[in-house]
Structures are given as structure tokens and as C-alpha cells.
Amino acid sequence: MTSDEKMRLLWVEHLNRIKNDQDEAAFAELFDHFAPRVKGFLMKSGADASLAEECAQEVMATCWHKAHMFDPSRASVATWIFTIARNKKIDVLRRQRRPEPEDLGWGPEEEPDQDDVIVLQQETELLGRAMAELPAAQRELIERAYFGELTHSEIAAETGLPLGTIKSRIRLALERLRHAMK
């Protein structure tokens, strides 16, 4: 296991400590790492520094309150925090409702399978590494898409990213769930 993979599992561990023990030291470390990233994301998406600061604090507070909803067999901590920050952006910067797909009803009630957690976190790490290794121009294009600097018709259909593995893994989990619901 690489040090980056260990880091991802460490963040999962931090969220567990926040969920189970209201651990403020774990939260402080999570905050140090993610709050500036969330703030930067919001500023690049068009917020001024003081609004981005305020929203980043609210996003991190939501992480605390919703720690029990986090399922590490479905998402990495970075993915999960991104979705919270993205919804904050739509709510505050764009002042729109965000229609969400129907929930499949998988709650975090059951303890996720540890092997599923490790594989999901590893595959996220592989995708992250592939992104870091993309030619600068291509990586910049993806970033601009996520910061809202490109319209949907300007977004290239080919990202050049190995999305296949992660898609199959998610698909597998969905099929397992559908099967369990029958």
C-alpha cells in the first residue's frame, strides 16, 4: 500500500472518530487539510474570499454533522467533501434548487465491508494519480470544467481518464444492492 493510499484510509478513520467519539482533534486535522481546498474551490468558482471562507466553514461543519452518512465503501473522503462543497456552491453562488436522483435507500446502518472500503479507496487513489499525471493542458481543462469556466457544450467528451474501473466497481455495488432489495 502506498503512502497516499494510507492517507486516504487515515481520513476514513478520522471521519469514524468524528462520528463515534465527536473527536475534535481528528476534526482539526481534517479541517487543516480540506477547509483551504474547499475555500480555493469556491473562490475559483466565483466567490470572493470572505464568502468562500464563510461557506468553507459551513461545509466543514456539515462534515461533522453528517459524518454518520459517510460510507467509505462508496466514496473517498475527498469525493464526499467535494459533493458537499458542490451543493453549497449551487445553493449560495447560483441560488438554485438542485434536483437529486431518487435515493436507492442504502443507508450507512450496516457496517461496510472492510475489503470493499480498501478497494474503493485504492481505485480512487489510482484515478487521482492518473489525473496528476495527465498533460498539464488536459488537466487544466478538467479543472476548468469543475470550476464552471466551461459550458457543458465546451466540455470535451473524452477526458482521457481511466474512469472504467471505478465505474465497474460502482456498478457492481449497485447491482448487489438491487439484488438485496428484491
Partner: peptide, 10 residues
């Protein structure tokens, strides 16, 4: 969403 998380991470 995973790609978005990695944009945030990086």
C-alpha cells in the same frame, strides 16, 4: 463525482 473529489484534493 470522484473526479471532482480529486480536483479538490489536488
Amino acid at each position: 463525482d470522484v473526479v471532482g473529489g480529486e480536483v479538490l484534493e489536488q
